[in-house]
Computed example of a mutant assay.
Amino acid sequence: MEAYDGVAHFPETQTAVTLRLHNKEIEILAPYGLKDLFEMKVKPTTLYQNDSYFNSLYIERVTSKQWKKIWDKLSLEI
């Protein structure tokens, strides 16, 4: 499933979510689940964790988005 594989490579767990219409029903594709989204937690996905080559990209992205200014209760894992 290409859509699932695509969002599995997103930097943050709570942004790795997509919806699609399948057989006239809405299907949620969330390879890391929805818990972080509903708990307002920003965490890196597997490819972007601390020991990863891509971790600096995750940190840069999360910092540049300035999400804490919009959602002050948001928890950021950096």
Rank of each mutant, 00 (worst) to 15 (best):
K43G: 00
Y48A: 07
G33T: 01
Q66K: 15
S56G: 07
W67C: 05
E27L: 08
K41E: 08
E60W: 04
W71Y: 12
K43D: 06
F54P: 00
L74K: 04
K68V: 10
L57Q: 13
F38N: 11
E60M: 06
T46W: 02
I70T: 13
I78M: 13
E39S: 08
D36C: 06
L37K: 03
K68M: 13
T46A: 14
K65L: 15
T46F: 09
K65F: 05
F38D: 03
L74W: 00
I26L: 11
D36P: 00
V42D: 03
E27N: 14
D36G: 05
K41G: 02
E60T: 13
E77C: 12
L74H: 05
E27W: 10
Y32M: 01
S75F: 11
I78C: 09
I26M: 06
S75Y: 07
Y48G: 00
D72S: 13
E77A: 09
S75L: 13
D36L: 01
T46H: 09
K69E: 10
V42T: 02
T46V: 14
S64T: 11
D51R: 15
N50S: 15
S64E: 09
S75K: 15
I78N: 06
E27G: 03
V42K: 03
S56F: 12
L37I: 06
S52G: 09
E60L: 12
L37C: 01
N55V: 08
V42F: 04
L74F: 04
